[in-house]
């Protein structure tokens, strides 16, 4: 019988990787998530504490998947503190996916923070398809940089470049990810751009890509409750990010006036970024 992805399933943590002092990757066995498309997310239940949307990260074992968490509030901190052997409840994967044009040969990925998670899963797919890939990793400082080695390993079969930018300039290019992007685009051209990270960063990535007439896809975050398109807590204009997204293309993004302007808080009120 096919499993109903909406029903919470128990998974047990098999490994935990420390990415930075405040970022960890948690690996677990789950066949369904192991087949998730790049850009999809899980609803992760931390029993008795919270349920949070988390992008699906790559795992190096068959039938395994992973999530990467940045410690922030109550929910993510409880998740961050989970240990090997402990249980989580997951449902999904949900959402659409990053689409890859059949004729794409070189692509640019721009990520910041945990927005890098879906991009790493995308990178794994690009690697399989032997599509050349430039990945820009944006961070505030060297201490906050993660996934540099992971990305290198994930992209090992294809021509790739990894560029790190730090805001304080203690590692890689000085500036933010979009500064690095502008610099790269002066020298190279790409068939398309993919981005995930803070919304104001993505908005800038969209603006730069548009200036070069590059197709772009961005994975958006909104407050999620149901994850299945019934509550609209995740809405941006007339779109449900959990169901119509999380990935939107430049055509859709240009119509979403709220993109980079407003998000809705837990009550549903519009808040200015």
């Amino acid at each position: 019988m096919p499993i109903n992805i909406n029903i919470i399933r128990s998974v047990f943590i098999e490994r935990v990787l420390n990415e930075t002092a405040s970022v960890k990757t948690i690996l677990f066995k789950d066949r369904v998530s192991s087949k998730a498309d790049p850009g999809q997310f899980l609803m992760v239940w931390i029993p008795g504490v919270e349920e949070l949307p988390m992008s699906v990260m790559v795992a190096d074992e068959e039938d395994s998947a992973a999530i990467t968490i940045r410690r922030k509030g109550i929910g993510s901190t409880a998740l961050f503190n989970k240990r090997i052997g402990e249980m989580l409840g997951i449902r999904g994967p949900y959402g659409n996916k990053f689409k890859i044009a059949p004729n794409a040969r070189t692509v640019l990925l721009v990520g910041g923070g945990t927005g890098l998670v879906p991009l790493i899963r995308l990178a794994a797919k690009l690697n399989e398809m032997r599509i050349c890939c430039t990945l820009i990793i944006g961070a505030s400082s060297k201490r906050e940089v993660f996934f540099e080695n992971t990305a290198d390993a994930v992209l090992s079969d294809t021509k790739h470049k990894i560029i790190v930018s730090t805001e304080n300039g203690d590692y890689g290019i000085k500036g933010n990810a979009t500064d690095a992007m502008a610099q790269v685009l002066k020298e190279e051209t790409f068939d398309s751009v993919y981005t995930c990270g803070p919304e104001l960063m993505m908005k800038k990535v969209l603006d730069i890509a548009s200036a070069y007439s590059l197709p772009i896809q961005a994975s958006l975050e909104r407050h999620m409750k149901c994850g299945i398109g019934i509550c609209a807590s995740c809405c941006i204009e007339d779109k449900l990010v959990c169901k119509d997204g999380t990935v939107f293309c430049e055509k859709q993004l240009s119509k979403l006036n709220e993109f980079g302007m407003f998000y809705r808080d837990k009550t549903g009120r519009k808040i200015v970024y």
Binding site: N4, N6, E50, C226, G268
Partner: peptide, 29 residues
């Protein structure tokens, strides 16, 4: 007044086309 409602999980899917929810009347006011 605006209400935040409860923490997640606020909506749970059950087998056979049913849901259980305790959104806690979250609304913008």
């Amino acid at each position: 007044e605006p209400m935040e409602g409860y923490r997640n999980p606020t909506a749970v899917c059950l087998e056979g086309g049913s849901y259980l929810n305790a959104v806690g009347l979250a609304n913008p006011g």
